[in-house]
């Protein structure tokens, strides 16, 4: 067993709930975007930009972005504690790199959404 000090909520149950809640948000967001693109053949910039200009879409997109970060963190944390069991420092470095990616995604995504 590896030390669980870096897991999200310091508790497996909390991580389990976060993983499920973010999964449901991401599933709904994916289906919505897929539906929009399918329902709008020959999508134009005006239609696309118009969608992302709506405040509710910004809220929806930000919820999806935060969900990606939480969901991916729990997933990557699980992968790291399953496979990198030999060295605590190596596992910590892996987790640090993953967190760096996700923080970048978060700021980058907010920048995109708020530039619209």
């Amino acid at each position: 067993m590896v030390n669980s000090v870096t897991n999200f909520g310091r508790s497996g149950l909390y991580d389990w709930v976060i993983q499920r809640l973010s999964a449901v948000i991401l599933a709904i967001y994916t289906l919505f975007l897929f539906g929009f693109v399918v329902a709008t053949p020959d999508l134009t910039f005006a239609e696309w930009h118009g969608l992302f200009s709506q405040v509710w879409m910004k809220v929806f997109s930000l919820a999806a972005l935060i969900s990606i970060c939480a969901h991916a963190w729990v997933g990557m944390w699980t992968i790291s504690t399953d496979y990198i069991t030999g060295s605590t420092s190596l596992r910590f470095i892996f987790q640090l790199v993953m967190a760096g990616f996700l923080f970048t995604y978060l700021v980058w995504g907010i920048d995109i959404l708020w530039s619209v």
């Binding site: 696309w48 930009h49 995604y105 995504g109 995109i112 530039s115 619209v116």
Partner: peptide
């Protein structure tokens, strides 16, 4: 996700 954000940024 990096590719998706790249595309989203360019599209908007």
């Amino acid at each position: 996700v990096a590719f998706m954000l790249c595309a989203l940024g360019a599209s908007l």
